[in-house]
Simulated scan of single mutants.
Amino acid sequence: MDGVHDLAGKQGWGQVPHTANGPIGDTFKYDWEHLGYSLLFLGVSKGIFTLDEVRHSVERIEPRVYLTTPYYERYIIGAASLMVEKGVLTQDELETMAGGPFPLALPAVSPGRPAPEHTITFEVGDKVRVRDDHFAGHVRYPAFCRGKVGTVQHRTAMTWPFPDAAGHGRSDGGAEPSYHVEFAGEELFGDDTDAGAVVVDLFEGYLEPAV
């Protein structure tokens, strides 16, 4: 889905400061931040929702709330929203525990979709194009690579549920491998870029031969 969460490659935001991960203990800056992942993995382990459903729920957070909310708090909102949507909690119960109003994700606008039929298995070195489609539901490709051509660098040995279905709680999406696809910086962003190349991990159903 095209939303406020998909900001990579957008004009006007400048470079993103980045530092490599430190020791495990440095993962969380504040004591409360672990709650987001705790709720996420609790719900997944209990079969209440899938990881892709949580990602979709985070994507559905109202844009003004999304942009003013820290990363881990978004996952608290996402997991809590699913708890309400799945009937585990009511919004009143949630707000009683929170001690006041609690923002929830906006309703989904799409029922999801299964993987495309007749996908192709690619090999390292193959030229591929990302499907140029616009889908209102959850997807796992950044908008900046839609319709762009890259080269397969690696194919995973394992398969995972197709996110466009799993993100909506569907079980008819099948499972696919993913590919590491390298794109030239100019292919993605034009001549005005500092990127020499960008590698994106993409599900098989998002790819087609580049002809």
Results as ranks from 00 to 15, higher is better:
residue 202 L to P: 01
residue 187 E to D: 06
residue 114 P to Q: 00
residue 94 L to H: 07
residue 176 E to F: 04
residue 85 E to I: 05
residue 201 D to P: 02
residue 89 L to D: 12
residue 201 D to G: 02
residue 179 Y to F: 14
residue 32 W to D: 14
residue 35 L to I: 15
residue 148 K to Y: 01
residue 208 E to A: 15
residue 116 P to D: 04
residue 61 I to C: 11
residue 65 V to F: 00
residue 98 A to W: 07
residue 66 Y to E: 01
residue 109 V to C: 11
residue 120 I to H: 02
residue 191 D to S: 15
residue 187 E to K: 05
residue 182 E to A: 11
residue 156 T to V: 12
residue 99 G to R: 09
residue 128 V to W: 00
residue 202 L to C: 02
residue 2 D to N: 10
residue 18 H to M: 11
residue 16 V to A: 12
residue 79 A to E: 09
residue 131 R to C: 02
residue 76 I to A: 06
residue 13 W to A: 13
residue 182 E to P: 00
residue 56 H to S: 08
residue 110 S to T: 06
residue 118 H to G: 12
residue 138 H to R: 09
residue 40 L to M: 13
residue 48 I to M: 15
residue 19 T to Y: 04
residue 177 P to L: 04
residue 51 L to G: 14
residue 89 L to Y: 06
residue 126 D to F: 02
residue 138 H to L: 10
residue 63 P to K: 03
residue 200 V to D: 00
residue 138 H to G: 08
residue 190 G to N: 07
residue 51 L to T: 12
residue 18 H to R: 14
residue 44 V to L: 10
residue 1 M to S: 10
residue 148 K to R: 14
residue 134 H to A: 07
residue 134 H to I: 02
residue 201 D to K: 11
residue 205 G to L: 09
residue 25 G to P: 10
residue 206 Y to C: 07
residue 142 P to S: 14
residue 80 A to R: 10
residue 98 A to K: 08
residue 74 R to D: 05
residue 168 H to T: 02
residue 156 T to C: 06
residue 136 A to W: 00
residue 139 V to E: 12
residue 104 L to R: 15
residue 196 G to H: 14
residue 182 E to K: 12
residue 177 P to N: 05
residue 151 T to W: 00
residue 170 R to Q: 04
residue 159 T to I: 15
residue 135 F to A: 06
residue 45 S to Y: 03
residue 61 I to P: 02
residue 169 G to K: 03
residue 88 V to P: 05
residue 63 P to L: 04
residue 111 P to L: 00
residue 26 D to Y: 02
residue 200 V to N: 11
residue 43 G to I: 07
residue 162 F to H: 13
residue 89 L to F: 08
residue 97 M to S: 10
residue 27 T to W: 04
residue 41 F to P: 14
residue 83 M to G: 12
residue 34 H to K: 14
residue 68 T to F: 00
residue 42 L to G: 07
residue 109 V to I: 14
residue 174 G to A: 12
residue 101 P to L: 04
residue 3 G to T: 09
residue 83 M to S: 02
residue 48 I to C: 09
residue 177 P to I: 13
residue 40 L to F: 11
residue 85 E to M: 07
residue 204 E to L: 14
residue 128 V to G: 01
residue 204 E to Q: 15
residue 29 K to W: 00
residue 115 A to H: 05
residue 205 G to M: 03
residue 54 V to C: 11
residue 80 A to Q: 10
residue 122 F to P: 06
residue 194 D to K: 07
